[in-house]
């Protein structure tokens, strides 16, 4: 056993590639790429425990959307005047519903544009306060004050039991997009930014969201021919 200068043979690494290939294929098989995208909805409490003192909403502050069994959409915004018929829309005309909903929501938002079709609600107005997770109160930027909640209106969405889910989803989405558009417009106006999603902080976006709170309420689907 002398101090012979023996050369240590290198580890044969030629199979590492094969091993990692097997790992790679394993991961390709057991995992999936599809991330979860969708619409988030909050359900009301069970019917038997719902408080009976549901705030009464005046008809003029109601946007009624009804999807029938033939997947046609009937929209009644506010109180119909003498001889006025509800608006009937097809699934591919939903863009119209979006514009109508935006107009309706703005008109029913205190401080928004005045629209004689939808008189302003005269309920108690409460100002928006927002305290974030860190316990800091976030305020609207300078020059903007007295922002009140827009919880004066309600959008009701009712379907028939045989309405297709696809149509219901599209209507839901259009109503969501009306709120999103208004929040976007509000953010651009108040903060003076071009792309609110990218330029504003999460707290600022939350403030914009609270300016236009989602007031969609869903009624139980009705059976064909039976009306509530």
């Amino acid at each position: 056993m002398g101090k012979s200068k023996r050369k240590v043979p290198g580890i044969n690494a030629s199979s590492t590639a094969d091993i990692s290939f097997i790992l790679l294929i394993f991961f390709l098989v057991v995992t999936s790429m599809n991330s979860n995208f969708g619409l988030q909805v909050m359900l009301p409490n069970p019917p038997d425990e719902q408080q009976q003192d549901d705030p009464e909403v005046h008809e003029r502050n109601l946007l009624k959307v009804y999807v029938n069994m033939d997947n046609e959409i009937m929209v009644t915004a506010g109180k119909l005047r003498e001889g006025e018929r509800p608006l009937m829309l097809k699934v591919d005309e939903l863009e119209e519903l979006r514009e109508l909903a935006k107009e309706f929501i703005t008109a029913n938002t205190p401080g928004g544009k005045v629209n004689e079709n939808y008189p302003e609600p005269k309920k108690k107005l409460d100002t928006i306060t927002y305290i974030n997770d860190a316990g800091l109160e976030i305020l609207y930027p300078n020059g903007v004050s007295n922002i009140v909640r827009n919880n004066q209106h309600v959008i009701t969405l009712q379907t028939d039991r045989s309405t297709k889910y696809e149509v219901y989803f599209k209507v839901q989405e259009v109503l969501y997009s009306a709120y999103n558009d208004l929040r976007d417009e509000f953010a651009k106006e108040v903060y003076g930014v071009q792309d609110p999603e990218k330029q504003l902080t999460a707290d600022e976006l939350e403030l914009c969201r609270r300016r236009y709170v989602n007031m969609i309420s869903e009624a139980q689907p009705i059976e064909i021919g039976k009306r509530k």
Binding site: Q40, M42, P44, N45, P46, Y165, P221
Partner: peptide
């Protein structure tokens, strides 16, 4: 159809699983 979905939603409400997606 929405009838089945509303039945499912009613079950979710009764189970107090209210956050849906």
């Amino acid at each position: 159809d929405m009838g089945l979905l509303s039945d499912v939603k009613m079950q979710l409400r009764k189970a107090y699983a209210l956050q849906i997606f």
